[in-house]
Design a protein around this nucleic acid. Sequence first.
DNA 1: TCAAAGAATAGATTTAATCTAAATATAGAT
DNA 2: ATCTATATTTAGATTAAATCTATTCTTTGA
Lengths: 141, 141
Amino acid sequence: MNKSSQCEASEMLKRAGISPSYQRIMVLSALLETDEHPSADTIYKKLGSNIPAISRATVYNTLNLLVDRGVIQSMRTAGSETRFDSICEAHSHFFCRKCKKIYDIAKQIGEIKTELDGHLVESQEFVYKGLCRECREEMKK
Amino acid sequence: MNKSSQCEASEMLKRAGISPSYQRIMVLSALLETDEHPSADTIYKKLGSNIPAISRATVYNTLNLLVDRGVIQSMRTAGSETRFDSICEAHSHFFCRKCKKIYDIAKQIGEIKTELDGHLVESQEFVYKGLCRECREEMKK
DNA sequence: TCAAAGAATAGATTTAATCTAAATATAGAT
DNA sequence: ATCTATATTTAGATTAAATCTATTCTTTGA
Ligand SMILES: [Mn+2]
Ligand SMILES: [Mn+2]
Ligand SMILES: [Zn+2]
Ligand SMILES: [Zn+2]
């Protein structure tokens, strides 16, 4: 929907050596426009109203390709669906056990490990779980 | 298989107010005997060789019940299956992207948050991902 | 001894994700 | 411009983890 995010998406694709097809631009652009860490199906439904519509397989293919190329990241921690994040720079997440929303948390300062017990560390993240602000308010009522 | 882990499992179930049926003892006991963070199906297969065998549904039911009661913990970060951990005390994990093994990492000292941006923090963990010791060795060959 | 509640079970169902095989689109060569 | 090879998209079939359903078995305690 948003012209500037489509432009940004196109640039990101080119930079990653992925040809910027209409469908790929639409998928990445949809992800860039939100901070809600949507699932593949959420993105598919969001794009479904567009003409021409995009196949579900293409949404999955594109997201997986982008993850493989390190353009976006995915997480399987909350709920049953894999969720996606257009921001790859290190930051933390808070997962709400009730509404399944995922919130960004500013990166905590801490030692960055490259090795741990002989294992090669490629990424590290602080994961917080609990009840989010909104759900806490709901509970009070 | 192991008598002492069955005894421990039985005690844990009683302490959590869950009646210690044969099946529940077998499931929890199997989880106590390993540090490999097995999936429900791994536990099911391990128990399958026992007589009498246990239903897959019972394995899932028991594990979910134990997670709900806070006796064990589950994680959905590596591979496609949910993995289980009999250790609930705070510790970190390393996930190998290649072999999907999960390794325990001693808890890093760090500030324990109870609130973050207004969200109620119930648990927090450092998550490490990369290539494990064994897989690194494999690669060298 | 019997009724009611608690557990376990096999198999059906759901659902996220992947796979398949065919159709379209794109790019490079002639 | 036309042809050809490659890349991309697609709808629908398939897979696999997890849950659900409806029945059977077990335990408890009146
Ligand atoms: Mn994020
Ligand atoms: Mn562990
Ligand atoms: Zn919430
Ligand atoms: Zn490994």
